[in-house]
Design a protein around this nucleic acid. Structure first.
Lengths: 197, 197
DNA sequence: TTTCTATCTTTACACTGTCAAGTTTGGTCA
DNA sequence: TGACCAAACTTGACAGTGTAAAGATAGAAA
């Protein structure tokens, strides 16, 4: 019978603990606070222990990115599930989840979307459902597509919400004294989207 | 008479030299290669010399960001000036300059747009012309605006090109085997923009 | 019991940002 | 002219960092 309170030489679940510690450090102190040694200390192991579970700091960052993408997909799906079951409300809900995640997890989302590897795109390969990219694709599917097919719709929505979220978090987009404040829904409605049929 | 070849205790123009060295390091080795000590070495001074010109590494990064924003504005303006003098060609040209800058200066643009401070937004204050934000505003001005005024147009275009550029550089948006490749102009044309009057 | 292997620790090293103190330089002022 | 001074730069030091190598431990396997 496993006893987690017993102090053992083996941690038992160090890999996941290190990822959790890393995300905690990210949320508390930003990207500069994310350190292999601090993760190790927070998980209660020596500073060199992480090397046996990740390929250096970059490996930990990749693992954190994967965990973050899972959180990200869940955040969007939850918003979609809570919305009316029709194309436009679902699309708005997805974007709301996208933006909310960026705002609530600034350092994490920043880390995730500054990785060159896979991220959303490659997730279509494994046929694993509920990934962020699949959510985007299925949410855009009900709309009328132009001659370029659904990809143009997906990329337009994705670019728009990605840019808006990023610029919002970075403090570039904000309300100014003499101008009305613009919500994302205002921008989304500028896209020429129409429900198919 | 100033002699720049004479080896002197005073560098003469160390601040600008450090910024240039920093940008070089960025382009050569990415953000991890940007180091105060390496900048100092490349500029031919001791490792602690930069401290007299910038408030630490963050200060150097801010200075590099400012220089980068100037390059960025120039890149966009050059494309605009080379385009036909009518609203749509100018808008496309601006976006082409935006995307090109991201592709040609990946690490630099990444650094710039991950700064929370000022950047484009605040540049309207100083009334300094030709800043990136002013270019965006004036390029969007000829188009018909909705009830929210020009800000909605500006933010829609900005979010779209920012998101597309970012996702392109990060390798998220690309051509896939069974799908047509989508250019940014395809996405931009999905915005409901019409020339005023 | 003995052995083995994954897991973690210890030790060491090069590199980083930053601080404090010392040194040089070019100009200023009496 | 000559003393002085402030800015510019150097030197030396220190705590953190990632990473590699070698050692120690424990749990399972034989």
């Amino acid at each position: 019978m496993p006893n987690t309170t017993l102090k053992s030489h083996h941690h038992g679940n160090l890999r996941e603990a290190l990822i959790s510690s890393g995300i905690e450090l990210l949320e508390e102190g930003g990207v500069t606070a994310l350190t292999l040694r601090k993760c190790a200390a927070r998980a209660g192991v020596s500073h060199a222990a992480p090397a046996h579970h990740f390929e250096g700091l970059q490996g930990l960052i990749r693992a954190i990115t994967n965990r973050g993408m899972s959180m990200f997909a869940t955040a969007m799906q939850d918003k979609i599930d809570a919305a009316d079951n029709s194309p436009f409300p679902r699309l708005y809900a997805m974007c709301e989840g996208y933006l909310s995640f960026f705002i609530e997890h600034q350092a994490l989302s920043n880390l995730m979307f500054n990785q060159k590897s896979e991220l959303m795109t490659k997730s279509t390969k494994g046929r694993s459902t509920n990934t962020a990219f699949n959510i985007l694709v299925s949410t855009c599917a009900p709309f009328k597509h132009g001659p370029l097919g659904p990809q143009a719709t997906e990329y337009a929505v994705w670019s728009l919400i990605q840019g808006f979220s990023h610029l919002s978090v970075m403090g570039q987009i904000s309300c100014e004294p003499n101008r009305l404040q613009v919500n994302f829904s205002d921008l989304l409605s500028m896209l020429n989207l129409q429900v198919a049929q």
